[in-house]
Amino acid sequence: MLIAILNILLLVACAPLVSGLISGIKNNLRMRRGQSVFQPYYNLAKLCAKEEVVSETASWIFKAAPLVVIASMLTAAVLMPWCIVAGPLRQAGDLLALIFIFSLGRFFLALAALDTGSSFGGMGSSREMFISSLAEPVFCLVVFTLSLQFGSTDIAAVSGMHAVSVASIIAATALFLVTLAETARVPVDNQETHLELTMVHEAMVLEYSGRRLAFIEMAAYIKQMILFFLIAQIIFPIALPVFGGVSEIMLWLLWYAARLVIVAIAVALVEVSVAKMRLFRVADFLGYAFVLSIVAVLCALLGV
């Protein structure tokens, strides 16, 4: 139990770093000297210290939403088999349940965006629900492929020792595309601007400030961490650690971190080399992801 709690704490502590790392890599690729990789931490600290502005038109939904969002992401996090054999709450849910838990947070964020009565919020809310509803079938088919491969939708089973197959790599690629959409990355959304044309996630959280914004950002980091971790587990499967010496565990941790970094590099590469799509092209983008996930199912059926 103690290890489980330590795991969650480690995850929460590391989650912002992944985002910092991605922007660091992007800056390097663009030949810029940008912010430090620890900038997300500074931002969070800054937000926690700042005065908060709550819209006059907002109701309790607006005030409660950040708590629901962070609670749902943390719940998702405890289902994950991070470093130990299984997630501490393995019996609470499986990969499919993860889809539903993600949508809980999204639902409240979309409501909170409508709550302030600003057009930006409504726009973000509408777009976010649009994109996520198209991403959902892809996520489902990815889980379906994994279930066909490993005979179960258990997250730990998917993350166990297994041979890398064509099917799981294609499934992971489809999941990668979904992750770009779900974490507001470039071809779908842009985290770096506040321009109306690109506003999806940023438009939803526009009215938030101070500690509540910090909560929402933290939740986004955790969600990103979970999705990256899933992709890493599928592409670079490794046996889970048998509790040996301290140095052994350290080695495992290093390998876990290295895999996340690889996914982060891939995301950064996509972000610097692809242009933002127009909203209705996103439907096509997720359509490709859907086709890719069907190919993954077919590969799983062929046994490759």
Binding site: I70, T75, R90, Q91, A92, G93, A97, I101, S152, D154
Partner: peptide, 22 residues
């Protein structure tokens, strides 16, 4: 098969984390 779902456990986790967040 190790496929489980427990709404009470999830509800508990959500409530606990919500409280912690508060």
């Amino acid at each position: 098969q190790r496929v489980y779902l427990s709404a009470p456990l999830l509800a508990m986790a959500l409530a606990l984390f919500g409280l912690a967040g508060f």
